[in-house]
Simulated assay, not measured.
Amino acid sequence: MKNTALIALIALVSFAASAVDLSNIDADQDGKISKEEASTHPMLKEQFADLDTNGDGFITKDELKNG
């Protein structure tokens, strides 16, 4: 069940990333989502480590697209 939710989240985020409008999440407009920025969105907060594939502490548009 948890994997199903993760797959659904990744699909949703990938779809959203295709529009490449992260401005409502990316508060400082630096082109990436920090843990702090993700903390305001429950699903991103919960899955942050899985989406941050390179482990740098940020989620980028490429990580969302490739997720």
Rank of each mutant, 00 (worst) to 15 (best):
T4G: 08
F48E: 01
E63Q: 15
G57E: 01
M43W: 13
I7F: 09
F15M: 08
S14I: 14
K35T: 04
F48G: 02
E36D: 03
D28V: 01
D30T: 08
I33D: 05
A17Q: 02
E37I: 00
D50A: 13
E46R: 06
K65Q: 13
H41N: 14
K61N: 11
N66S: 15
S18Q: 12
P42M: 12
G57V: 00
G67W: 03
T40N: 07
V13D: 02
D56C: 03
D26E: 04
I59A: 06
E36V: 01
Q47F: 11
K45M: 08
S39L: 01
E46I: 05
G67E: 02
L12C: 11
T40E: 04
K32I: 09
D26I: 02
I59H: 06
G31Q: 13
K32D: 14
L9A: 15
E37Q: 02
A27R: 03
M1W: 13
T53H: 11
I59T: 05
I10V: 07
A49Y: 09
G67R: 03
L44H: 01
I10M: 13
A5G: 08
S18A: 10
E37S: 00
T53K: 12
E46T: 08
D21H: 14
I33P: 04
H41T: 06
A49R: 08
G57P: 02
V13A: 09
A27I: 02
Q29W: 11
S14N: 15
I25H: 03
L22H: 14
N66T: 14
D28P: 04
K61M: 11
S39E: 00
Q47E: 09
A16K: 05
D52L: 12
E46D: 06
T4P: 06
N3M: 14
S14F: 09
A38W: 00
A5W: 01
G31N: 10
D28H: 04
T60H: 05
V20M: 12
L44G: 00
K32T: 15
A11R: 09
G57D: 01
K61R: 13
A27N: 08
S23Q: 12
L9P: 04
V20P: 05
A11G: 11
D30H: 07
I59S: 04
D28F: 04
F48K: 03
L44T: 00
K65H: 12
L12M: 12
D52P: 07
T4N: 10
A49F: 07
I10F: 10
F48W: 05
E37R: 00
S14W: 06
T4D: 14
Q29T: 14
I7D: 12
T60S: 10
E63W: 05
S34K: 03
D56Y: 03
P42I: 13
S34G: 05
S23A: 13
D62E: 15
V20S: 11
M1I: 09
N66P: 06
A8E: 08
M43F: 14
L9I: 10
K32C: 11
G55R: 08
H41Y: 15
A38Q: 00
N3R: 09
N54M: 07
M43I: 14
E37N: 00
M43K: 10
A49T: 15
K45P: 03
N3P: 12
S23E: 12
A27T: 04
D21Y: 11
F48D: 02
M1K: 14
K45A: 11
